[in-house]
């Protein structure tokens, strides 16, 4: 019969139409208020597509989501070097950046002019950035990461779209919050929560870093005994001074770790599944979501 196909098609659209109301009745008004229901609506078992009421509800972005890059710095409550850059201005991100939107000024020592492993300035032109994530992928120091904040609309691009170092810097704890599993994986691969260079210095000093686990993800590092100020002499080689400072730091950390050591092994023994720092490929502990969430909430409460 002519028209049967059209009727069949209309039946499908009608079913879609009715289903929306069936759904409304099922959730009887709670549909747009409760988070569980939002989860169900956007979930895998839900039929069809449900609208995300954007400014009120936001679809959480996954961990690997990449928008614009940011630079990792030490937490503000870091006992030794709060706010220190992780970036060593090695320039790999600038090299692998396909549209070449990363500009780095390598820091140099004011007295000798020799390069120091710290960026003096760091710019990302987000009008050019293609959000590809290569910078984060190939950074050997885990110092540049892809941010999840996509709400960047602005009224003026000349003043807003070149992100400088101050804007780009975000504490490590921010990265841990937006991408917990990745942050942990990386930390396990590095062998500690600290910057790879610091870890190297610690290793040199014969000190083992704290093994990264879910449990110590947000615990504050123990404040170290105040490091001795490096001997000040005008004619000293700054590179040497830098080395000295690093050593002092490591020593301080060692001291601190020694002080806190007795409690640590017992905790580690209980946690049998904690991965060893030397084996980054070892099975990582099962992600306990609830505990993790609880921790984040706790931490937020502490902050606020």
């Amino acid at each position: 019969m002519y028209g049967q196909g059209i009727l069949k098609g209309l039946w499908v659209t009608f079913r879609h139409f009715v289903n929306t109301y069936v759904d409304d009745i099922r959730y009887a008004g709670r549909k747009y208020l409760r988070q569980e229901n939002f989860a169900i609506r956007q979930g895998l078992k839900a039929q069809g597509a449900f609208t995300v009421q954007y400014p009120d509800e936001k679809l959480a972005v996954p961990e690997r989501f990449r928008f614009t890059p940011f630079l990792v710095v030490n937490d503000p409550d870091h006992p030794e070097a709060p706010g220190d850059d992780w970036c060593t201005s090695c320039g790999i991100c600038a090299k692998v950046c396909p549209p070449q939107c990363i500009w780095i000024v390598r820091g140099s020592d004011p007295t000798t002019g020799r390069p120091v492993p710290q960026p003096e300035a760091f710019f990302i032109d987000i009008d050019i950035c293609m959000n590809c994530g290569f910078c984060a992928e190939f950074c050997p120091f885990d110092a540049i990461k892809m941010d999840h904040n996509y709400e960047l609309a602005s009224y003026d691009r000349t003043s807003h779209h070149i992100h400088d170092k101050q804007y780009l810097s975000r504490p490590l704890s921010y990265w841990k919050t937006i991408a917990p599993t990745t942050a942990l994986e990386e930390a396990v691969a590095r062998g500690g929560w600290e910057h790879p260079d610091v870890l190297k210095a610690m290793k040199k000093a014969g000190q083992t870093a704290v093994t990264p686990t879910w449990d110590n993800m947000f615990t504050k590092p123990e404040p170290a005994a105040k490091p001795l100020p490096p001997a000040e002499s005008a004619d000293e080689d700054p590179a040497k001074a830098e080395r000295l400072r690093k050593r002092e730091e490591a020593l301080a950390r060692k001291r601190a770790a020694e002080a806190g050591e007795p409690a640590q092994p017992a905790a580690a023994a209980v946690e049998a599944s904690a991965p060893a720092p030397a084996a980054p490929t070892a099975d990582k502990p099962k992600f306990d979501k609830q505990a993790m969430l609880e921790k984040i909430r706790q931490r937020k409460a502490d902050k606020g």
Partner: peptide, 28 residues
Amino acid sequence: LPERIRGEATRVNDLVRDYDTMEFLTEL
């Protein structure tokens, strides 16, 4: 492939899309 398909842990909506990846793919 990630272990799980899910959103950021910090957002309030993190219950959304929390699935085992293989489970997600199988269903899909």
